[in-house]
Computed example of a mutant assay.
Amino acid sequence: MADGGYVNIWMRPEQTARGPKPAYSRARIAESAVRIADAEGLEAATMRRIAAEIGAGAMSLYRYVPSRDDLIVLMADRLMGEIDVEGLPSGDWRADLTRYANEVRAMWLRHPWIVTVHRSPHSYGPNQLLLIERVMGVLDAYVSVDENLGLMAILNGYVEGAVRDEVSRAGEVRRSGLSESEWLARAYPYVLQLLESGKYPIFSKIAMEAGQMRLSRDDQFRYGLERVLDCIAAALQVPAHPRGRRDP
């Protein structure tokens, strides 16, 4: 059942037609919130803390951002603005999607707290809309909108899953107080016990033969991304001409 009382933050004008210019802006509030979350975690980015940083009264900020959920929407859209999609689509779909995937990963690694955020896919902020236009535009000439949505879901699912794992692992290493090599070494005695048991031949094969296990995180991400793009290429069956275009 629809919430008749809900009003999307983007439907609320920042400034009315009459009256004084607002003392603060959503962009400034979101920027401050992101800066605090980067330094201390998402929970630290409270209205009171943001107000103290920008020199405002906490209650006055609620005129600009009515709720915590609205603040998260603004913060998430602010991060989407860091994903550089200038010039997309370029005509080279594989290069475009590679660039987009790497941009998304880099953004998540700069702001690891974003993995804890449940972002509404229907907030449709200005930066999210720009991403939709540019990134969905990459395959628009080749496939139907439904196929496009499905292929983008596959790509985004890979990127977000890979980066969530990367961020989680980095967090565990940090909390352990060990170096990454020391953290990995803790598992060696148990892995050796499993190998010597002879009960798990596939696990043993992974441990002894899998080259991916020895790749850097960058190379692992690149390898997986190439496989995803290969799947997209197979689904596209890219024709000599995009849909709706023919040589004169």
Rank of each mutant, 00 (worst) to 15 (best):
L236T: 10
I132P: 00
I206K: 07
A233M: 05
S144P: 06
M213I: 09
V138D: 02
E209R: 11
D140N: 09
W183E: 06
R119P: 01
S179T: 15
S197A: 15
R134I: 01
C231A: 14
E133P: 01
L129K: 13
W108N: 08
E172S: 10
A153N: 10
K205A: 14
R99L: 04
S197T: 08
S216H: 07
R119V: 13
A106P: 06
H118V: 10
P189E: 02
R227C: 10
L139H: 04
A141C: 04
I132M: 13
V238I: 11
L129N: 08
V173H: 00
D140I: 00
L229P: 03
L194I: 11
Q128S: 13
E147F: 03
H111Y: 06
L129Y: 06
G125H: 06
S144L: 06
G157N: 06
L195C: 09
L129T: 10
Y124L: 15
V145M: 11
A235T: 08
V228Q: 01
L178F: 02
L97T: 02
R169M: 08
R94Y: 03
G224F: 00
F221E: 03
R110G: 14
D140S: 13
R110K: 12
G177V: 07
V173S: 08
L194K: 09
H122N: 10
D140H: 12
Q237K: 15
E133T: 07
S168F: 03
G125T: 05
R110I: 01
N102P: 00
A235P: 01
N148M: 10
M136L: 12
M208F: 07
R110A: 15
M107H: 05
A233G: 13
Y124T: 03
R164S: 11
A101G: 05
L225D: 04
V135A: 06
L139K: 03
V143K: 05
S123K: 09
G157T: 07
L215A: 11
S216R: 07
L195W: 01
E226Q: 10
D96H: 03
R99S: 08
Q212N: 10
D96A: 06
N127G: 06
G161V: 05
V104E: 03
R222G: 04
S204H: 12
E172Y: 00
